[in-house]
Amino acid sequence: MSGLQARLLLLLLTMAAVWESVASLWPPRIFPHDVQALAAAVRASHQPGDLIAVAPDWLSPLIRRELGDLMPVEHVARADGRRFARIAEVSLPPHHAADVDGLPPQAGTQRFGRLQLAHYQQTPVVVTYDLTEHFLDLTASQLARSQPSGELPCLWSGPLPAAVVPLGPMGAFVCGSTRVERRTMEIDYQPRRGLVTELAAGQKTLLRFSIPDAAWQGSTLHLWLGLHDYHQRKQAQGPVVVTVDLDDGQALLPLTVSVGQGFGHHQLQLPSSRAEVHHLKLVLEADSAPHHFLGLHGELRR
């Protein structure tokens, strides 16, 4: 190598050293004052029922630190954002929240340092019945997989859900050694609000909802299914089968929930027969039940 080549190499190296040193002295960062200014802007335009969506996910604690009072768990752990008319999206470009995919931003997108605030509007879906909200109206029971009869009820145990959460275990429908709970689930490492059923070996778990005709007619059943808790997923073997029984057998739809899937979305047409009350039954079972914590959320939407 000639002296000239060596000097060129040294020059390149010096340039790299300057670049890296500058990046260490002034690294990309999210400043607290930017987060606070952004939060003030969100708060100024916020209306009750607005969704605050954050992307990427890792920003969420910073935003909730400032705006958590406007971000109830039902919003943060939503299945999707279709029920919200107005969405304020806080993002670190080029990231975007999935809730605003396909929506044009309103005028007035603002930058706060590296963060961006954009507002979106959409025609929201009408949710006529929410299975998670109606958790306490649920009838849960278990039935041996080998026997068609002998259904055992799962009775409520523990404190009822309340605005102020008491210390100690949460209440749940208890089915022998397993439980049906309403909680914020971890499915595919995302927060999802819904119902969790721990499957029992050799048992089917039956979840029944009675839905008024006014909510039923003209609606579509949206069902999200997935397996809760990474630690359980690591040990779970094989899928869960969820059979959706609409109006006592008028429609029977088997759905498979595999270990690796996320919060799978299914849209099911409802039978249009008239009745004062309609019946939605979900039958949950797995050939290998241990470590299967089935998480579900459902809505009747128009």
Partner: peptide, 13 residues
């Protein structure tokens, strides 16, 4: 973190 939200009834740290 989700357990904490449920136990404390808030998502605000």
């Amino acid at each position: 973190e989700y357990w904490i939200w449920d136990a404390y009834g808030t998502t605000k740290p």
